[in-house]
Amino acid sequence: MKIKNLINWSKQNLFSSVFNSLISLFCIYLIIISLPPFIDWAFLSATFEGKLKTDCKTSGACWVFVKVWFEKFMYGFYPVENIWRINLSFLILILSIAASFFVKDKFKIYILFFLIFIFPIIAFILIHGSFGMQIVESREWGGLALTFILAIFGIIFSFPLGVLLALGRRSELPVIKYFSICFIEFWRGIPLITVLFAAAVMFPLLLPADTYVDKTLRIAIGIAIFESAYIAEVVRGGLQSLSKGQYDAAKSLGMGYWKMNIFIILPQAIKTVIPGIANTFIALLKDTPLIVLVGMAEILGMINLAKANPYWLGMAVEGYVFAAAIFWVVSYFLSSYSQKLENKYSTEKK
């Protein structure tokens, strides 16, 4: 019975026409030639036990490399005895996001407020150090923690800025309108790598000699502004999808510009562009490894350092596979979270 079902299923889904059959056979061929060797390399003949490169004697992957360097990949050169501070910051973040799933709508606004205004301060104090905690300069930050710090900072600040720019671009006031257009087109027109170099190398040259802005902060602000231009265009797409009637109705009830946008226009516009916003944020996350080029070691940078270590030469593949797996997991989480949001807020389509 089961086999019959399977045959039926494959007839419908894999071999419904000559062309589809050819594609199916080709895909099956690709899987057969690539998957078994990969599984053999990554799991069956891989080495998991040991502390040195010489412990890896088999032909498979040497996960000892990742195991030994794991802490550095995660936290960079952050002092080991203070790692709990990074963990605590991310724990607070994860808990408050988790809490937003369970509390009533009324309290969600407080959680959002906390995440945007209070959490960044707490996280900075914890990670950078203050109030008697040992100060850890940002040049010692690194690894996956730095990837997340930059991505989260970028998301938290680029989103509100992008929304304001989107509104500004549709404003009836010429000054605001043309400022927004110039701002968006300027930042969209230059590559991220330029922004990073400018923030890391050029910006300090333009400042008076005695002022100093932390390099990580400069980079983070650069990324946030860069992404805000993209968010602005995504949100503008949502704004354009709304009918004029929604504006008329809001205005006819006596709502001013801000009330109309906050309660009527933006909730609907943002809801329709959740996939686009998630897309931008995933791209932002995957752009962060570029900071390697300005001398900062997030996870990919740490892997580059580790594979150049004389005792661990030739471990590049393991490192990159590990990084790919981590990026995939995080991006997949972001994308499925956005799908959940989409389903949850699709009220009018029921």
């Binding site: 929604q246 109705a249 809001a250 009527i264 609907q268 009220t347 009018e348």
Partner: peptide, 8 residues
Amino acid sequence: QQFNLFPH
């Protein structure tokens, strides 16, 4: 004419 209720 088109009601213009807020659908969300």
